[in-house]
Design a protein around this nucleic acid. Sequence first.
DNA 1: ATAGGGTTAG
Length: 832
Amino acid sequence: MASLPFNTIPIKLPYSVSTKPPSKNHDEQAHHSPSSTSYFHRVSSLCKSGEIKEALSLVTEMGFRNLRIGPEIYGEILQGCVYERDLSTGKQIHARILKNGDFYARNEYIETKLVIFYAKCDALEIAEVLFSKLRVRNVFSWAALIGVKCRIGLCEGALMGFVEMLENEIFPDNFVVPNVCKACGALQWSRFGRGVHGYVVKSGLDDCVFVASSLADMYGKCGVLDDARKVFDEIPERNVVAWNALMVGYVQNGMNEEAIRLLSDMRKEGVEPTRVTVSTCLSASANMGGVEEGLQSHAIAIVNGLELDNILGTSLLNFYCKVGLIEYAEMVFDRMFDKDVVTWNLLISGYVQQGLVEDAIYMCQLMRLEKLKYDCVTLATLMSAAARTENLKFGKEVQCYGIRHILESDIVLASTTMDMYGKCGSIVNAKKVFDSTVEKDLILWNTLLAAYAESGFSGEALRLFYEMQLESVPPNVITWNLIVLSLLRNGEVNEAKEMFLQMQSSGISPNIISWTTMMNGMVQNGCSEEAILFLREMQESGLRPNAFSITVALSASANLASLHFGRSIHGYIIRNLQHSCSVSIETSLVDMYAKCGDINKAERVFGSKLYSELPLYNAMIAAYALYGNVKKAMALYRSLEEMGIKPDSITFTSLLSACNHAGDIDQAIGIFTDMVSKHGMCPCLEHYGLMVDLLASAGETDKALRLIEEMPYKPDARMIQSLVASCNKQHKTELADYLSRHLLETEPENSGNYVTISNANAVEGSWDEVVKMREMMKAKGLKKKPGCSWIQIKGEEDGVHVFVANDKTHIRNNEIQRILALLLYDMRSDVK
DNA sequence: ATAGGGTTAG
């Protein structure tokens, strides 16, 4: 069937202005007077230049002169009001029209114009009332009504209008169709959109660039990129908007590379990029972390002389903030002249992401000086700063500001507030926020789940998991991952594996985070072999390990002390992750080689490092610590000082533990004083613990006791246990017993106490005590916490105790490392 | 007809 070109569609004549006016109000002479026409022209030109008030006074003048004021004059002024979006003036004209009687008020041209006017001013209700009173609904009034519904988001209404038009044989033209497409896109109704596409082809509208671009845009918004591309490819004369629409489609569907490719394609075809093009490419670059691509886009904006308007500016800001080039973001910010809340929020969020919370707060103060108010985005950003820094007080202040300004009902702010409470360890408050939020979405549920999962409250997590399903909120991958995480954090390995399978049978396939959650959980629960198996399984399922999963796999290898696995993963990194090699990977490699016994290789990896960052140095220092090489550890510490890198608490932990392994008390005291006097740092409990350990194992029980008394912390179980061990060695059994009993009396529900006492007794060979501790725990219904390992007795063979760390793989655990070190020295033949 | 900001999982 031949398609009709759209301009041949039978369209009813929209209006007639030929009706004779009632003559009683008007002078016959005036009716034919030429000055009436000249007034019309003057009114018309005033309206076009936006001087509606002046035009209106001319009309009043005409009334005084008894000149005929025809419908076309009112139409002209109404059109002027449409240009200016001047609702109140338009209403005055509407009033005049009504006053002049039905000849004007019921004129089809005027009636249509009024509908268009109210529609363009977004006054939907009035437009609808007038529309319903129309005797003749032409394509113009329909277009106006559909347009306004589309603009204010009543997409279903707009589409129903489209259907009704067709039913009444008013054929949608090339002005209506783009709006209809937009509504389909917003609703993601691709099937409806396909129907519209069919209509477009049948009526021959598809030659119109506006129609075709909006079709491409519609398919893009619906995620049907193949069809978007097809429509795009068939546009005979593609303009820049068509290119932009397709590009936006790619970006919104995560196909950032394709969007960038489109930029070069369009430039090859000689199409000049616009601000929209550049903004879109900047989004793509920001999403994929493409620094080069974003810089290129910025360069294009400059070369093409594109004006740095608000939106282009914010796109640039967004890009520079996302890729961490905060100085560039600051430059763009300074050059922008029309900054709004979005602009400020972006820079503030950029500072927060860089950890520059002080700068973020300073920016907020400046923002207030510019008379701009914080909105829920500002608050959510500040709240995430509070969450990152675990600053409960600040978080509460932000929350209160939100309550005072009635912004707390915002669901994103609520999520962030819950996240903050979760990160600050105040789950009760997180739950309170959750309960007080009326409209709960999936993310809100997930945020609360995350708080529970983080702390290993698997029971609460599961309860929530079932509750949300009762409330008809279907879980997504993240939900499942959190459930699995909560189980793993609580040491429920088998339950976690079971849930992992259930997730798959519920039709949700694990993503890379699901797999790494499993792997990481296995490692932390001492099942590193299984972690490696999960890695293999993940690869078989077609997912490529990323930097993080590789880090986990390396720590699994380290725990297994398996140079074999470790090397093969190193090989994988060299083959596949050469370009995304990160500090964390280099750090894990050093750690792995050290723990697998190849300190030389660890040194070589460290020597060929790409980064000079503290964590990497800490890893190497820890490696030397493991081998008791105080000299080399100290040398690295000094080179940190030379480079002006401030050592952190972890550095000192490693240095002290190096001294511990070497039994070097003097050096340890030197380091301890260095930390306080030279770096102004406050030693933490772990540092004191290492010192106590060192003193205790050197038999200096009294000095150790004195240190415990002097330190500003309550001694923990580990520390007292060091003393117990030291007492045992010196046969101060009474003191040892006293300390052990004291420990169990003060914290009888702390399963860690039983484990540490048990372990210390294992070292001393007091196997009866080990058994006793296990039984006491069982009687109390206490379970070992993950990450807390103990030596179990497997039995006795040929009169020799056979024992294992509960899974042989807890070498990473400091406690077990220490015990194994002692055992290897004293009772090597006992190790199985 | 096309373009910008804040939230959840390893």
